[in-house]
Amino acid sequence: MEIKFENVSFNNVVKDINLKIEKGQIIGIVGSSGSGKTTLVEMIDALVLPTNGRLLVGDFALEKGKKYKNINELRFNVGFVFEDANEQIFSNTVYDEVAFAMRYFKYKKEQIEVQVKKALMMVGLPEEYLYKNPFNLSHGETKKLAIACVLAFNPEIIIFDEPLTALDNASKKNLIKIIRTLKTRYNKTVIIVSQDTDFLHKIVDKVYVMHKGNIVMAGNKYEVFQEEELLNKYDVKAPSVISFAKLVEKKKGIKIGYRDEINDLIKDVYRYVK
């Protein structure tokens, strides 16, 4: 499923965006707070409609002021994990919570049970949790539950809005694993909105930097994250893996290449020291 923005604006928050996101990519969107990142991704799920221009999600065209009776055809293909997971929980059991969306997306009963269990396993919630009350879960577990809710109905495009809040270290690693499998095994499009460039650098393919409603930088992650000074201008911190490599090059004149993971970088440094 392809996403295409054609001169899309939303009030003064997002201004005149032209963008094309291809299937099977992991996209990162960074920017200082108030730069319009969340509004941009909310438009993909038709939670806000553009006030100007046209947005194509697959064959579904979104325009200003229209009413869409068949909106669930779009929402079935787009999953959205919100920043505050507590805001969506209202069922009595974890099972009902995860199954909630699937009932509206016309899943069969037997299918629902299989999918719910699969989704819980993927995010790392034990099966005993199925009949627990979701209001008694901790903050991090609630976040995992919210991710499971989206994974369960198997959308083509998955959007994560600030996925790292409330997750502990192990869960962060697990989330990275999940996102990678989503791309490699299931060929899904994943869009991540985050401030944490270290996290983004590990997994994304393409990065868009937003500033005051405009996309100011776009491209391959190595290209974008190298421009440290430009990033600073837009109030975005370059990933430490890259800034370390740049620092070494500047101080000692040694090139050690850009790595995705800090472990690979350490190996490189060790090799050089030896």
Binding site: E42, D45, L47, K67, N72, G79, F90, A101, Y104
Partner: peptide, 28 residues
């Protein structure tokens, strides 16, 4: 918005759908 993304949209739905959407909003 969170509930709309899961298939119960207040704006684009029937009367029954609107009732479900309100319930799904009031509890949280």
């Amino acid at each position: 918005k969170a509930q709309a993304s899961r298939g119960v949209d207040f704006r684009n739905s029937t009367f029954k759908g609107k009732l479900i959407a309100i319930k799904a909003m009031l509890i949280p």
